[in-house]
Amino acid sequence: MDTNLIEEAKRYITKLFEGHSDGHDLNHSLRVYENAVKIAKEEHGCDMEAVALASLLHDVDDHKLFDTKDNANAAGFLKEHGVDAERITFIVSIINSVSFSKNKGKTPDTLEAKIVQDADRLDAMGAIGIARTFAYGGKNGRSLEESIEHFHDKLLLLKDGLNTETARKMAEERHRFLEEFLVHFEDENPLV
Rank of each mutant, 00 (worst) to 15 (best):
L5P: 01
E7K: 14
Y12R: 09
T14H: 10
F17M: 06
E18A: 14
G19A: 08
S21D: 15
D22C: 15
G23E: 01
H24F: 09
L26N: 07
N27G: 13
N35Q: 10
A36T: 10
V51W: 00
A52G: 05
A52Q: 06
D62S: 11
D62W: 09
L65M: 10
L65V: 06
F66T: 05
D67V: 15
K69V: 14
D70R: 15
A74G: 04
F77W: 04
F77V: 07
L78H: 03
E80W: 09
D84Q: 12
A85L: 12
S93D: 08
I94F: 03
I95Q: 00
V98G: 07
S101G: 12
S101I: 15
P108R: 02
K114D: 03
K114M: 11
I115K: 03
I115V: 07
V116P: 01
Q117W: 11
Q117A: 10
A119Y: 00
R121A: 07
G126D: 04
I128A: 14
G129E: 01
G129V: 02
I130N: 00
I130F: 02
R132Y: 03
G137T: 05
N140R: 11
S143G: 08
S143H: 04
E145P: 02
H150L: 11
L155A: 05
L162M: 13
L162F: 06
E165H: 15
R168K: 13
M170E: 08
E172W: 09
E173C: 09
H175F: 08
F177G: 05
E179Y: 06
F181M: 08
D187I: 10
L191Q: 08
